[in-house]
Simulated assay, not measured.
Amino acid sequence: MSARPAVAALGGGHGLAASLQALQLVTDRITAIVTVADDGGSSGRLREEFDILPPGDLRMALSALCDTSEWGLQWRDALQHRFAGGGPLGGHALGNLIIASLWDLLGDPIAGLDLVGRLLGARGRVLPMAGEPLQIEASVLGADPACPDEVTSVLGQVEVATTLGRVLSIRLNPDPPLPCREAVHAVLDADWVILGPGSWFTSVMPHLLVPDLRDALVHTSARRMLTLNMALNTGETQGFSASDHLEVLAAHAPDLHLDVVLVDPSVVRDRGDQLRDTAQALGAEVVFAQVADPERPGTHDSLRLAAAYRDVVE
């Protein structure tokens, strides 16, 4: 076990969960570093009412790392259970409420997440990317269809994720954010750092805007892998090619060097020559691997993604 690589996986939402499920088959030394800018749904309601980190993406990461015993899977399902109805509990995930309760009880977000991890028998640790809830602000071209050439500011994760315009850049409020020291140390101590997959501007890029975390990503001795999404030209990245994703990353973190860009060949136009050229400018090799889930278009298959991670890491 000691020979297995230490991996820090950065992202949020379903993309990070898919990556974590795959990584469990490669190593038992995993640290998930999760975005904390969500302001929608159950997370947004709890964040606004109690001024806490949005727990939803943290809950999903913990659930993805659960032990595969009957105990672990039952607790995973319990944490993921969402209350129905239009009452005060309607729409809340039980895990969000448990996490918020533990934070209130313990007064320490990291200790609360570690305790939920113990409950799940989690095969890894889950940490927030920052020590305070963050707000995403984006510069968007054509957010108002009536003014397609106008650049305006769009506030909030939900608003950025659903904008009708083209996202040009993002920033975080407050700036600079309070860093999570444990997350910084996890990146510095890793053998591999994996960015993505996930919503590009609202789950992946925000990590590069926390100065201490970005510096750790730049200076770590770990190798760095970027996992591209299975669906690139949708939502907040409408009109983006695979190469455009890398250019956005370089614009937000010009000093960041990559070693590997992992991508399913189905999402790359023509032969992928442009992607190779853009990746090479970042110091990276492009690795093409069949990682799509044939039963669920636009998503990763955990076993295929695990095989791709194993081949690259080993």
Rank of each mutant, 00 (worst) to 15 (best):
V167W: 05
Q157Y: 04
L188G: 12
P177F: 09
V187A: 07
V126R: 08
P145D: 07
P179L: 07
L172M: 12
E132M: 00
C147E: 14
S153G: 04
D144Q: 08
N173A: 15
D175F: 12
I136V: 15
A183N: 03
P179R: 02
L164V: 05
S153I: 15
C147F: 07
D189W: 06
S139E: 15
L168Q: 14
D189G: 13
G165M: 06
T152E: 08
L134P: 01
A143I: 05
L178K: 15
T152H: 06
L127V: 12
L134W: 03
L164N: 12
Q157C: 02
W192A: 11
A130S: 13
T152Y: 02
P177T: 08
V184K: 06
A183E: 06
D175W: 09
E150H: 07
G165L: 05
P176T: 12
M129W: 08
V187I: 14
E150G: 01
P133F: 08
L172Y: 08
L127P: 11
V187P: 05
M129Q: 09
Q135I: 11
L172P: 08
C147S: 10
W192T: 06
T152F: 02
E182N: 05
G142M: 03
G156M: 02
A186N: 12
P176Y: 05
A138S: 12
P133T: 08
A186V: 11
L134Y: 03
P133C: 13
V126H: 06
S169A: 15
D144S: 13
D189K: 14
Q157H: 13
T163A: 11
L178T: 13
A138W: 05
P179A: 09
V151H: 03
L172K: 08
T163G: 05
A183S: 15
E159Y: 00
Q157S: 01
T163W: 05
M129K: 10
V184S: 09
T152L: 03
A161F: 02
W192D: 07
L141Q: 03
